[in-house]
Amino acid sequence: MKKLCIVFSQGPHGNAKGREALDLALLSASFEQEVSLVFTDEGILNLLKHQSPETVGAKDYIATFGALPLYDVETILVCEAAMEELELAEHDIKLEVQFSSSQAIAEHFNHVDEVLVF
């Protein structure tokens, strides 16, 4: 068992990064790894409420974020600095997450075995 941290750093629907990051997160969790997620920069937009990906021919993988608790993925960190840059508020985010300082996220990166950035 390893501690894997998956970082979402790009916004959804413009490319496949978010979707392929989530696929890896769920798969890793089902393989009994200790998976944590970090959302930063435009990656936090993956967690915004009221998205309609089908409008642009994209699959609604956003709904699948709701399955994370079923896979025991409980550590979900959202970068406060990124929230501020995009002027988002905590109630804009659809999941139970921990809003975290840059320092706390840096410490988390040190704590895990591997970090995969998407």
Binding site: K2, D23, L24, L27, S28, F31, Q33, D113, E114, L116
Partner: peptide
Amino acid sequence: GLGELVTGIESADRLVS
């Protein structure tokens, strides 16, 4: 499958992407 990436990360000493 992606499982091969995950088991590979588990058994390797270091991942480089």
